[in-house]
C-alpha cells in the first residue's frame, strides 16, 4: 500500500507547555484514521500541525513521500527544519481541513465558498469553478442551497458546505477537527454520514472525534492520544472493545456512562 502521510517524532511546545511529545504515525492511501483522546490530549494540535496552521517544534512530516520543509544546520549543531510560507501554502492546498466551527466565509454564498479557492489558487475559470462547486455540493447533498449565505443554513448544512469546500481542492488527505462537536445532536448524523461516504469512496482521512460509534464503524485504525503521546492504537475492534491500557479503558468508560438499556429503534 502507498503511504500518504508519515509523521516522525512530532513535538509541539507552546512556551513551557509541551502539547505533543513525540508522535509517530503512518497513514496509507484510502485509510481512515480516527483520533480519540480527552480534551487537552493534543488531538487538535496534532491535526493543526499536519497542515502547519501550527508549526511543529520538532519532528518530520512527509506527504506523499516528500518531506515538508528544508533541513538547515542549527545553532548548537542540531539541525533544524525551516518552512517557507510558499511551500506551506502549496501543501495546505492539498490537505483539506474541516473545522469544529465550520468557518465558512460569511460574505459568500455556499457556492462561492466552494468556488473561491479553485479559482484563486488553481486558476480555474468561474464556469469551471461553478461546475466543481455543484459537483461537490451534490456529494454533500446540498445543491439546492448553492445560492444561500451561511447564515441561512443549519449547522449541519454549514459543515457539509465546509466539507464540499475542502473537497473542491481535490485534497490528497482530509483532516476533520471535531467536525460534529458544535452541532445539535440531531444534526450530527448527517455530517457523520457524509464523512463515512468519503471514507467508503477511498478518501484518506484523519478524523478527530468523540463519536465512538462512528470510530468503531468507520475507522480502519484508531489512535488514542493521551498526554501528548499515542497511548494505544490499533484496529477499532481492539482499541474500543479490548483496550490494553488502563487509561484507554477509563476514557471509554467515561463515554459510555449513560446508555439506553435496549435501543427502542
Amino acid at each position: 500500500m502507498d503511504e500518504v502521510l508519515r509523521i516522525e517524532n512530532l513535538h509541539k511546545r507552546f512556551g513551557d507547555l509541551e502539547v505533543l511529545k513525540g508522535i509517530n504515525l503512518s497513514v496509507e492511501k484510502g485509510e481512515t484514521v480516527v483520533i480519540l483522546g480527552a480534551s487537552g490530549s493534543g488531538k487538535s494540535t496534532l491535526l493543526r500541525c499536519l497542515n502547519f496552521l501550527e508549526i511543529p517544534t520538532e519532528g518530520r512530516i512527509h506527504l506523499e513521500g516528500r518531506e515538508i520543509g528544508a533541513i538547515r544546520p542549527g545553532f548548537n549543531g542540531k539541525p533544524r527544519i525551516v518552512y517557507r510560507e510558499a511551500e506551506l501554502a502549496k501543501l495546505r492546498a492539498k490537505v483539506g481541513m474541516v473545522f469544529q466551527q465550520f468557518n465558512l466565509f460569511p460574505h459568500m454564498t455556499a457556492e462561492q465558498n466552494v468556488m473561491i479557492a479553485p479559482m484563486k489558487i488553481r486558476g480555474k475559470s468561474s464556469a469551471e469553478a461553478r461546475d466543481l462547486a455543484i459537483r461537490n455540493l451534490e456529494k454533500v447533498d446540498l445543491v439546492d442551497k448553492a445560492k444561500e449565505y451561511p447564515s441561512r443554513l443549519s449547522g449541519g448544512q454549514q459543515q457539509r458546505v465546509a466539507i464540499a469546500r475542502a473537497l473542491a481542492m481535490e485534497p490528497t488527505v482530509m483532516l476533520f477537527d471535531e467536525a460534529t462537536s458544535a452541532l445539535d445532536p440531531e444534526l450530527v448524523g448527517e455530517v457523520l454520514l457524509t464523512i463515512r461516504k468519503l471514507s467508503e469512496e477511498g478518501m484518506t482521512m484523519l478524523v478527530v472525534t468523540h463519536e465512538l460509534g462512528f470510530a468503531y464503524n468507520v475507522a480502519h485504525h484508531v489512535v488514542f492520544l493521551h498526554d501528548g503521546l499515542i497511548h494505544e492504537d490499533g484496529p477499532p475492534d481492539q482499541v474500543l472493545r479490548q483496550p490494553c491500557k488502563a487509561r484507554t479503558r477509563e476514557f471509554l468508560k467515561g463515554h459510555l456512562l449513560f446508555q439506553l438499556p435496549n435501543s427502542p429503534l
Binding site: K90, V95, F99, N103, A117
Partner: peptide, 10 residues
C-alpha cells in the same frame, strides 16, 4: 485559519 487551510497566503 480557514483561508490558510485552503492554501491562501497572507
Amino acid at each position: 485559519d480557514a483561508g490558510k487551510a485552503l492554501g491562501f497566503g497572507y
